[in-house]
Amino acid sequence: MPYIQITMITGRTEEQKRDLLAAVSQATADSLGAPLDTVRAWVVEVPPTDIAVAGETHADRRAKSDQT
């Protein structure tokens, strides 16, 4: 039984997350030859202040890019 965790920054709509989960589940079933009803997938949303790229939070990087 495949388990897929998708971690991403908060801000997507419920519809976007639902579409993502459906697409990832189907792709997993297709690529592994697993029955779709055995695929488990979930989204973990993280605030932009809690994710860093090169030691800088995503929130700070976004704020910098908004200033330019």
Rank of each mutant, 00 (worst) to 15 (best):
V44F: 05
R61E: 01
K64M: 08
V53Q: 12
A29C: 04
V39D: 01
A41S: 14
P35S: 04
D30P: 00
Y3D: 07
R61C: 05
A63L: 04
Q26F: 08
Q16R: 13
A29T: 04
Q16N: 09
H58E: 06
T49H: 15
V43D: 04
Q5L: 05
Q5P: 05
V24I: 11
L32I: 13
Q26N: 14
R12S: 01
V43A: 04
W42H: 15
W42I: 01
K64N: 10
S25A: 09
E15I: 11
T38P: 02
D66L: 15
A59N: 12
A34Q: 08
A22E: 10
I9L: 01
D19I: 03
V53I: 11
T7D: 14
D60N: 15
A54H: 12
T57N: 11
V53C: 05
V24P: 05
V46T: 15
D50I: 05
L32R: 06
T10I: 08
G33W: 00
Q16H: 15
Q67Y: 02
I51V: 13
S31T: 13
V46Y: 06
L20P: 07
D66I: 09
E45T: 15
E15A: 13
G55H: 11
Q26M: 07
K17F: 02
Q5A: 09
L36F: 03
A52Y: 03
E15L: 09
G11F: 07
T68Y: 10
I51N: 02
